[in-house]
Nucleic acid binder design. Sequence first.
DNA 1: TTGAAAGCGATACCAG
DNA 2: CTGGTATCGCTTTCAA
Lengths: 342, 342
Amino acid sequence: MNDIARVAGVSLATVDRVLNARPGVRSVTIEKVNKAIAELGYVRDTAAANLARKRLYRLLFIIPETANEFIVALEAEIATQGAQLVHQRTTLERLSVPPFDSQAIVDALDALDPETTDGVAVIGVETPSVRDAVKRTRAKGIAVVALVSDLPSSERDHFVGIDNIAAGRTAAQLMGRFIRRPGRILVITGSRLARDHLERRKGFDALMSEEFPQLDVVASIEGRDDPDLIRQMLPEIFAAYPDLCGIYSSAAGNPGLIRYLEDTGPHDELCVVAHELTPASRAALQAGTFDAIINQDTGHIVRSATRLLRATVDRVPFDQTQERIRIDIYLKENLPHQGGHT
Amino acid sequence: MNDIARVAGVSLATVDRVLNARPGVRSVTIEKVNKAIAELGYVRDTAAANLARKRLYRLLFIIPETANEFIVALEAEIATQGAQLVHQRTTLERLSVPPFDSQAIVDALDALDPETTDGVAVIGVETPSVRDAVKRTRAKGIAVVALVSDLPSSERDHFVGIDNIAAGRTAAQLMGRFIRRPGRILVITGSRLARDHLERRKGFDALMSEEFPQLDVVASIEGRDDPDLIRQMLPEIFAAYPDLCGIYSSAAGNPGLIRYLEDTGPHDELCVVAHELTPASRAALQAGTFDAIINQDTGHIVRSATRLLRATVDRVPFDQTQERIRIDIYLKENLPHQGGHT
DNA sequence: TTGAAAGCGATACCAG
DNA sequence: CTGGTATCGCTTTCAA
C-alpha cells in the first residue's frame, strides 16, 4: 500500500479510500490509484486489515433442542471448533429452540441484533413465517445460511448440507443392489415438516421404482426422530410384513431401530441402510446390523457454515468445491477411525 | 501483551521472550509473566505475529511426471489453491520428477534449501534411499509430508492420503455384494514399487477370500498406470477368462479400461470398481460402464498437506479429524456436481 | 477531496 | 538479563 501511494503520488489514506470504495475521492484520483495497483500486482493482506479493524466475526447457530445423536454431534462440533476459532477472531454461539417449531425459530431470528451478531446458521422448518423471518434477518444486515435442511424460498445466503433427493437415491441404489430377492421395504421417516426428510423419501421411492421394480416400498412410518417411539412401532410392522427384506432409516432415532433388530435378530436376510454416522450407527454397522450408512460430515458442515458466513460478511468469494457437503457412503470397511486431537 | 507487561511489571520485550521461550530471562521473571498470562486468559494473535514476522510459508509439492488423470487433477488443485493462498502468506510450488524413480526424488529432496523452502509434500516410492533423503530433509529443518503413498519408515512428519488397505477392502466388499453369481475377478494394479497399489491389492484379496469365497481373484495385471498398455492387455485376459464377473481397477490408467469395455460392451454381467474420480471415470460411472468408484479427494489432499506443513513449521497442533482423508465411495447417485468458483 | 499520524498485536534489533 | 523503539500492512480519526 505504501508503494501504491508513492507510485500514484497520493497518501495512504487515499489509497485506502479507493481500495475500500469509500466515498469522497475524485475519479481522476481513483484512476491514478487503480493504475498503480495494476502496475504493482498488489494483493491485499486480509490479516493486517482485520488486525487494524479489530474485526470480530460473531456467529450464531440456531439448533433444535433434541437429544438425537446427529444434533448432539453437531453441537459438539460447534463447541470444539468454536474453541479453535478464537485464533481467527471468530466466536461461535449456540441457541437451542424447540424442535419442529417454526414460531420459536422466528422469535429467535427476530431477536437478533446486527450490533452483536454478524451471521447466523439455522436448521429450520420451511414455513412461510420462517421464510419471512429469514428475509428480515438478512435485511437487518445479518448473514444467514440454512443448515442441513434447505430454505430456498427464504433467499438465505447459502445452504450447507447435502442434496437430500440424491441421498435418498443413493440409499435406494445401494439397497437395491445389495438385496438379492424380491420383497418389501420399509422406510422410516422423521417429520413431514422437515424438508430434508421429505426429499430423501422422494429420491428413494423414485429410484426404487425406476430400477428395482421387484422391490416394493410399503407405507413408511413416521418416527419423529424418537428412538422409543420407533422401537414401539416396529413389532407391528414386522407382523404385518413378515417378508420385509429392507429398511431405509431416513431420519434420526436409529437407536430404537437398532434395539429392535438386536432384540429380535439376527436378521440375515434383511438389508438396512440408515442415515448419519454416530456412535450407535457405527456400532451397528460394525456388528452387521446395518449394511450401509449415508452420512453428512458434521465437522465439514460446521466449518463450511463458518467459512460461508464469514465470506458473506466480508463480501468475498469462496471455493464452491470446498463447500460442497458430500453424501458419504460408509460400509464397515471404510469407516474412519474414531479420532481426537493434535 | 501490553496488559501482560503491565500486570507483570515488565516490558513488552520480556513478555515476548517468555511467550516464545527465548533464552535469557530469569526464572523469577518467567514466573511473574506466566502468572499474568494465566490471570488474563491471554490468547495469542497469530495474524499479528505473522504480520510482524513477515512470515512466508514456501511449500513445494514433488509430483511424478505422468499424464494420468489423478496426478493431473492433483496438479490442478495445487495451482488453483496456490493462487488462493497468497492471501495467507503461503506459496505452493510444484516440481515434477520422473515417475517411479527413487533417485530423482532423492536428488530433488537433497537440492532443497531451508532458506528458500519451508516444507515439502512428496509422492514417493518407498526405497531406502528415499527414506534417507527424507530424513536428511527433515534434519535440514524442512517439514516433510508423504502424499498419497505413505513413507512410514522415513519418519516423515505426516501422511496425507487414505488407508489403502481399507480402500482395497472397501472395493472388495462392494464388489462382492454387487455380484450375484460365482465367478472370477481381475485386478489391475499399477506398479510393484508403489506402496499404495500394493496395499489396495492386499486389502482387496484379504476381504474377498474372507467373505466371498465363491469369487475367485485371478492373477492381476500390472498396467503401470498406462491406458494404452492396459487397453492392449485386456483382450488376452478376457480370452483366457471368459466368465469374468468383476474387475477391480486399483491404480490409474482407467481410460484404457473404459475404451476396452466400451469397444466390446455392453457387459451387463460385469461389475467394475475403479479408483479415483476423474472426468473419464465419472463418465464411465454415469454410463453404467463402472459400478462404483473409490476416491480420495484431491482438493482435500492439497489443503490438508498445506495445513499440516504449516502446522509443522509453526509447531502448533492441528485437527486430526479434519486432516483424515476419507475413502469416498461414489455411485452414480451421489456423484458431486461438477463445480467451479465463487 | 486529501493528508498526517496514531494505533491494531506482535517481533526484533540495539542499548544498557 | 531487561527495556525501548521501529516496524509489519492496513484502518481510522482529525485536520487541512
